[in-house]
Structure formats: C-alpha cells, structure tokens
C-alpha cells in the first residue's frame, strides 16, 4: 500500500553540490523507514523521467545523490551545469507529493544463514554480552524484519536497518585480517553481511552461502535499496549443499 502521507514531511529536500558532477538531495538527518521510502520514490521518479545528462543515482541513509555529465547538461540559459541540474530537480521534486512513496510490496528477501560454530565464531561472545542464550540471539536475529537502506562500502554490501536493540554489541577490539564473503555480523546497533572477503571488525554470528556480489549478473548486487530482508537459519549441512547461485 503506497504510503504517501509521510512524503511531504521530507520534501522538499535540501539540495547541494558534490563537485562538478553530482547534486545531493538530503531528506532530513534521521534514519527511518519513511525517509528510505521517500528516497526510493524520488529515485524511481527521476529514473522514469531522466534529464539529458543524468548518469546515475546513489541512495544512502538520508540522501539521494544524482550524478550527471556536465557536458551533456544543456546550459542554454548561460548558467552553470550545476544551476541547470538543480533548477531541473527542484522542478521535478515539486511534482512529487502527488506521486506517493513506492515501498517494495513483494515478500521480504530471505537470506539463509548458518549461525554459530565455525560459521559464527563470535556468537557466544554476542550472547554473553547481551545476556541471552546463543539460541535466543539466533531466534531474535532471524525473527526480525530488516530494511535494505542502501548498498555501499563494498560491492553488494547492504546497510541494514532493523536490528533488535537487545542484540547491539560493540565491534571487536582488533579487526580480523580476513573475513570471508557471506559473513553475517553485528557492529554496535547495525547488522550486515560481508559481500567480499575483507578485513573486518564486526562480531561474526553466522554466514550465508548466498553470493551478495555477482559481477557476472546484470544486477551485480543480490540486494538493492528499499527491499525488506529476513534471515533464515539453515544447518551446516544445508550450507554446504546450497546451490551456487540463484
């Protein structure tokens, strides 16, 4: 169900340049589902009505950054390319409240996770920190519904909202030199999934056999901003036999 009632509160966004090739639209300063939905709605509208010279859009927690090619932006009026793009965007945004937010309607994406053991070496530590049993940590982590705010940090890496507050755990005192792709971790009030093998300081509670970054695919990120997501516990046996790619 479109949730248009929340849109006008975040509109119009603050608008500022990011160098010669980008304009940032900033929708307040607070992470929320409503802001996320607004950003998705604006992105969808701008992509459906692209201006000459639009390169791409990058959503984040409270911002949507619009990249453009200054050479292609028509500046017949003699103003700078930034002024031309900004004026155009203000115009487009003025039409937005009538459009409504487009929240993802389909079912939540399910990410299979094998919790604990060799796949989640920090599960015991997280359980101790939170004063819960390991089974409780898994039940609460897999019982919550998350929102993909945006993809950043690394190819395919999702910034997720929705971690139950009782699971918040500080980062490890010293980062691991190598965290495997697919590792599911907690860092402070955030949870996330490592999309590539990298050094990392998150508390690792499990691992997914799904590949989050798939460079051979037209959509190289398994997840995208605006989706709902759930973690689904699987056994080590299921992990080992998980089909390679969907």
């Amino acid at each position: 169900m479109p949730d248009s009632s929340r849109l006008p509160a975040a509109l119009p966004p603050r608008l500022y340049p990011l160098g010669e090739t980008a304009v940032v639209l900033e929708f307040g300063a607070v992470i929320s589902e409503a802001t996320n939905a607004t950003i998705q709605a604006v992105a969808k509208y701008l992509l459906a009505h692209p201006f000459e010279g639009l390169v791409e859009l990058v959503p984040a927690f409270t911002t949507l950054t619009v990249f453009y090619d200054p050479w292609q932006v028509c500046t017949a009026g003699g103003g700078s390319p930034f002024e031309a793009v900004a004026a155009h965007l203000r115009n487009q945004l003025a039409q937005l409240p009538a459009i409504g937010a487009s929240r993802e309607t389909g079912p939540a994406v399910e990410i299979p996770v094998c919790y604990g053991g060799e796949f989640g070496p920090d599960l015991a530590m997280v359980a101790r920190h939170c004063g819960l049993s390991e089974a409780d940590v898994v039940a609460r982590h897999a019982g919550a519904e998350y929102q993909v705010h945006f993809i950043g940090f690394a190819p395919g890496f999702p910034y997720l909202g929705g971690l139950p507050t009782e699971l918040a755990t500080p980062r490890r005192a010293s980062p691991r030199p190598q965290v495997p792709a697919g590792a599911v971790g907690i860092a402070g009030a955030q949870t996330g999934i490592y999309s590539l093998p990298t050094p990392g300081g998150w508390q690792l509670i499990g691992r997914t056999p799904e590949r989050l970054f798939r460079p051979e695919a037209a959509n190289p990120s398994l997840l995208r901003a605006g989706q709902q997501l759930r973690f689904m516990p699987i056994t080590a046996e299921q992990f080992r036999h998980w089909p390679a790619a969907r």
Partner: peptide, 26 residues
C-alpha cells in the same frame, strides 16, 4: 551518516589527516 562520495573528495577521519579519494574509492 554515510552518503555518496566521489573522485576528488577530501574526507577527514577523526584523526584529522585527510584522504583524497581516487578512482577506486568506495
């Protein structure tokens, strides 16, 4: 809050020593 950055961005971590982002920046 994390937001888009681009080539040429001079970002400053809490230590105060700047990093100028190049082609392969996050």
């Amino acid at each position: 809050l994390s937001a888009a950055v681009t080539f040429g961005t001079v970002q400053v971590p809490p230590g105060g020593q700047p990093i100028v982002l190049l082609a392969d920046h996050q």
